[in-house]
C-alpha cells in the first residue's frame, strides 16, 4: 500500500541516492552521496572534471556499480533486489526492468555506425519494447523530425556532423520515453559552432516534458536557463546546491566562487562566438 501512495505523490522523489560511495581502486570518486530527484525535475551538475559528476549519472544508468550505498528508482531498488527476504545484488533481469525508466545521451554520441539513422532510433523500440516495425518507424520519424533530421533517416552516422549525430542520439534516447534522462556532457565533444543546435533541442525537450533530467554540463548559461536546481560537485562531494539564481548570484562556498570566476572568464568569450556562429543571437 505504502509503495503505491509513494508513487502517486507528486513530491515523492523518482530517484534517491542514499549514502553512495564509488571508488576505483584507491581512488574515491564519490563520497557518501545523498541526492533526491523529483519527477520532472531538471537538475544540472557542474564542477571541475574528475569531480564525480559523470559517475553520478553512470551509476544510475547501471554502467558503473556503486561500491556502497543504494539507489532507488521509482520506489524500487536499482542495484539490489530481495530474494527470500534478504537484499542481494541485482541480477540482469532486475536491472533490465528498472533500467527501462532511464535513458542517456553520451558525450561521444555512441551511435551505432553499422546502422542507418532510422535504425539507430528504431532498434531498441523493435527489439527491447517489441514494437511492430511500422509503428516503430512512425515514432522514429516523428522524433527525428522534431530534432530536425527528417531528411537524414537513410544516412549512416559517419555521414553526419557532430551536432547532427548528437541530435540523433537524443532522439534515440527520447523515443524510449524514459522518466529520467541523463545528458553526460553532450556538447563537450562538439565543435563550438555546433553546440547551439544541440542545446536548443534539449531546451525544447526540457520545456515541454514532465521527464526528469540530469544535465552534466560545462555550459553555464544553458544550465542557468534549463535547470530547476544546480548542484556543484568537487572532490566527490556535492559542495553546494540551489536554484540557478542562488548558485550564480550568491555562491557561498569559496570553491564554487573560484570555479565560477575561473570558468565564466574563459567561457564568456567562447560562448559569444558560439552564439554568433550558430545564429542563436
Amino acid at each position: 500500500m505504502s509503495q503505491i501512495i509513494q508513487r502517486m505523490d507528486e513530491n515523492e522523489p523518482i530517484v534517491r541516492y542514499r549514502n553512495i560511495t564509488k571508488s576505483f581502486g584507491d581512488h574515491i570518486v564519490l563520497k557518501e552521496l545523498d541526492l533526491d530527484i523529483l519527477p520532472g525535475e531538471k537538475i544540472a551538475l557542474i564542477g571541475p572534471s574528475g569531480s564525480g559528476k559523470t559517475t553520478i549519472a553512470r551509476l544510475l544508468m547501471t554502467l558503473e556499480e556503486p561500491t556502497s550505498g543504494t539507489i532507488e528508482v521509482g520506489g524500487e531498488m536499482l542495484w539490489h533486489m530481495q530474494r527470500k527476504g534478504n537484499w542481494v545484488a541485482a541480477n540482469e533481469k532486475h536491472l533490465h526492468r528498472v533500467r527501462s525508466k532511464i535513458g542517456m545521451v553520451f558525450q561521444h554520441f555512441n551511435l551505432f555506425p553499422h546502422m542507418t539513422i532510422l535504425r539507430n532510433v528504431t532498434e531498441a523500440l523493435v527489439h527491447v519494447l517489441k514494437m511492430p516495425k511500422s509503428e516503430a518507424n512512425q515514432r522514429a520519424l516523428e522524433i527525428l523530425e522534431r530534432v530536425g533530421l527528417k531528411e537524414h533517416t537513410q544516412h549512416y552516422p559517419a555521414q553526419l556532423s557532430g551536432g547532427q549525430k548528437q541530435r540523433v542520439a537524443i532522439a534515440r534516447a527520447l523515443v524510449m520515453q524514459p522518466q529520467i534522462m541523463l545528458f553526460d556532457e553532450v556538447t563537450s565533444a562538439l565543435d563550438p559552432e555546433l553546440v547551439g543546435e544541440v542545446l536548443d533541442v534539449i531546451k525544447g525537450i526540457a520545456s515541454e516534458g514532465d521527464m526528469a533530467m540530469i544535465l552534466i554540463t560545462h555550459e553555464m548559461d544553458f544550465a542557468r536557463d534549463v535547470a530547476d536546481r544546480i548542484l556543484f560537485t568537487d572532490g566527490g562531494l556535492i559542495v553546494e546546491q540551489g536554484t540557478p539564481k542562488d548558485i550564480f548570484e550568491n555562491p557561498e562556498s569559496p570553491r564554487l566562487q573560484s570555479f565560477l570566476s575561473r570558468f565564466l572568464k574563459g567561457q564568456s568569450e567562447l560562448q559569444a562566438d558560439t552564439r554568433i556562429a550558430a545564429g542563436t543571437e
Binding site: 540482469e92 533490465h96 533500467r99 527501462s100 551505432f112 532498434e123 527489439h127 534516447a173
Partner: peptide, 12 residues
C-alpha cells in the same frame, strides 16, 4: 561506448 549505448537502450 557501443556497449554502454546498448545498455542505456536497455538491450539484453
Amino acid at each position: 561506448g557501443q556497449v554502454e549505448a546498448s545498455i542505456a537502450l536497455n538491450m539484453t
